[in-house]
Each structure stands twice: as structure tokens, then as C-alpha cells.
């Protein structure tokens, strides 16, 4: 090489070409990935703008406060108050997530930290199947089992034991209620939350567990003092994921929640969440003026609630990680 300067120069020039071409490919790869990444963000913007445009007739006609905090829902009389639907959505979601969290955390801890390989092997596919059951099947189950359970067992119990407390009083003893919706939701989001929390526990290095066990700590002490502080942000993220899913769940909830446009005051009151409102009515009675705009406004409100919730959760998570 040294004794042949001509070839050496040629090689250098050739290498320069190769480097330039490699760099070009890299630049293009980066651009393609960028576009694909930005696409979903753009999609949210498009959906938001589209909904805003379609619900503009109603948004421009009534003050926002009246729409968000009005309790009257009489479309044929031109009265559109979304408050009961918003509250109904929040209630059902909070009850569902609230019921789901404690068992989910316990099951995930058991599977990740205590269970032997055999139980783990058995539990994983069962959870996957649970996650794959279509919502309408959960809805039918809710209709046939949960609603009667609430009507004949939980309701009377609650009335007897805690009836003095509004939250647990039974005014509408049909079984179609926030509680029935919450129970169905809880069962639906459980497999998802368990799977995520389980994976988060698995991300903690084995060495860390062993360090604690080597000192003579029990499994539970190790979980409590070493693992839980480590995985807490992940658990919160898992709950947020479950809640986001719960907010939007439509058909299963709609089948058991009663669908009465009222602000629920008790777990046993019927409610009417936003997704149910949209699913039940869109495409019908469209001759009523502004009805179309009102339903799309409901969709807009739902989307904004979910976005705000996710932003809030992200901020909380950031705080926590610090």
C-alpha cells in the first residue's frame, strides 16, 4: 500500500463516496422514522379539528359553561346539557378502575414474585384470553349476572348496612347502575393492568432481589422495601393505561349502566356515560336540529377528557420519578 500511492489515493476517494452514501441513507432513514412518528400526533390534531368543526353549530350557539355544566338534556326542545354524561363517564371509570387496582396489584405481585414457573405458565394464557374476550360478551355477562347480583344482593345489603350514606343508598333498585358498569369495566381492564404491572416487576434486576434476600429479608420485605418503591411509577402508568381504556369503553358499559340522563348520586343510580350516549343515538333522530352537532360535541368532550387525563398523569409521573 505504501509503495503504491496511486492505488491508495483511489481507495481514499472510493471510501469518501462510500461514507457519503452511508450518511445519505442514514439521513433518509431518520426522515422516514420522523414522519411515521409524527403521523399519530397529526391524527389526533385532525380528529380534534374535525370534531370541533362538526360540533361548531352547537358550540357557537350556546355558552360553553351551559353545555358543560347544564343538566338538562332535551334535544327536541333545544336543550343540551352534557353535565350528567360527563359525570356519568367519570363515575363509571373511577368505580371500575378503583375496583380493579387492588386485585390487579396483588395478582401481579403474586405472579411476578411468588408464583412458580408452572403457575406462571398457566396464568399467562388465561389472562391473554380474558383480554381477548370481546366487550359485547362482557356486556352480556354483565346483563345476565352482574345486574341481577347488584339488584338482588349488593343493593339490598348496601341499603341495609350503609343506606344512611348517600353514596351507598339505593334509590333505583333495578340493578342497572354505576356499580354494575364499574364491575364490568373492572373485570375488562384487569388482564391488561395485571400484564403491564407484571412486566414492570420483571424489569427489576434479579440481583436486587437477591441482595435483599441475601441479608435475610423475606420475600414480602423485599417487595415492600425494595421492589415497590422501584416500580411505583410503572404501576401508576399501568393504571393510567387501564383508565384510558375504561373511559372509552362503550358497549359493555352501555348494556348494564341504565342509560338515564341524570347525575348519579349513589353507586346504585343509573348513569349515562358519553360513549353510550353517542353509540345509542348517532344515526337516529337526526332530524332534530343540532342533534348531530350535539353528539359530535359529546365525542369532542370525551376526547378532551381523555387527553387532559393523560397529560395530568404524565405530569404526575414526572414528579414521581424525580
Amino acid at each position: 500500500m505504501a509503495q503504491n500511492p496511486i492505488q491508495s489515493t483511489a481507495t481514499t476517494r472510493n471510501q469518501r463516496v462510500v461514507v457519503a452514501s452511508r450518511r445519505r441513507t442514514d439521513t433518509w432513514a431518520r426522515r422516514v422514522f420522523f414522519v411515521i412518528t409524527v403521523l399519530p400526533i397529526g391524527l389526533i390534531a385532525v380528529v380534534l379539528i374535525g370534531l370541533l368543526y362538526r360540533s361548531w353549530p352547537i358550540l357557537s350557539r350556546y355558552p360553553l359553561v351551559d353545555l358543560l355544566f347544564g343538566v338538562d338534556w332535551k334535544p327536541s326542545e333545544g336543550r343540551f346539557g352534557f353535565y350528567s354524561f360527563i359525570v356519568g363517564t367519570v363515575w363509571v371509570t373511577v368505580v371500575g378502575v378503583g375496583l380493579a387496582i387492588p386485585p390487579c396489584i396483588l395478582v401481579a405481585i403474586y405472579l411476578a414474585e411468588y408464583a412458580g414457573a408452572r403457575i406462571r405458565l398457566l396464568a399467562k394464557p388465561i389472562l391473554d384470553v380474558l383480554a381477548a374476550i370481546p366487550p359485547v360478551v362482557y356486556g352480556v355477562w354483565g346483563l345476565l349476572s352482574v345486574v341481577p347480583l347488584v339488584e338482588t344482593v349488593l343493593g339490598p345489603w348496601s341499603q341495609q348496612l350503609l343506606g344512611f350514606w348517600g353514596l351507598f343508598a339505593v334509590q333505583q333498585p333495578t340493578g342497572f347502575s354505576v356499580l354494575a358498569g364499574g364491575i364490568v369495566l373492572a373485570v375488562m381492564i384487569t388482564p391488561l393492568i395485571i400484564a403491564v404491572i407484571f412486566e414492570i416487576f420483571n424489569t427489576v434486576p434479579v440481583d436486587l432481589r437477591n441482595a435483599s434476600l441475601a441479608i435475610g429479608a423475606t420475600r414480602w420485605e423485599t417487595i415492600q422495601r425494595v421492589l415497590l418503591p422501584q416500580v411505583m411509577p410503572g404501576i401508576i402508568a399501568a393504571i393510567v393505561l387501564g383508565a384510558s381504556r375504561a373511559f372509552g369503553e362503550t358497549i359493555a358499559v352501555l348494556m348494564v349502566v341504565g342509560n338515564i340522563a341524570q347525575v348519579p348520586h349513589s353507586l346504585f343510580d343509573a348513569a349515562y356515560p358519553l360513549p353510550a350516549l353517542i353509540a345509542n343515538n348517532y344515526g337516529e333522530m337526526m332530524s332534530i336540529p343540532l342533534y348531530d352537532a350535539a353528539l359530535l360535541c359529546a365525542a369532542l368532550i370525551l376526547l378532551v377528557i381523555i387527553l387532559l387525563f393523560n397529560i395530568f398523569a404524565t405530569v404526575v409521573l414526572k414528579r414521581f420519578v424525580k
Binding site: P205, D207, L208, N210, A211, S212, L213, A214, I215, G216, A217, T218, R225, V226, P229, Q230
Partner: peptide
């Protein structure tokens, strides 16, 4: 746990607990 209290282990890689 009593055994592991009597017989301590220094692992291959240092594993400080997250505290």
C-alpha cells in the same frame, strides 16, 4: 432468613439497594 442472617453473601456485581 435466620440462615441468611448468619451467612452473608457478597455478590459478584455490587448491588446497592435503591435507597
Amino acid at each position: 432468613t435466620a440462615v441468611r442472617k448468619r451467612v452473608g453473601l457478597l455478590a459478584q456485581r455490587p448491588t446497592p439497594l435503591p435507597m
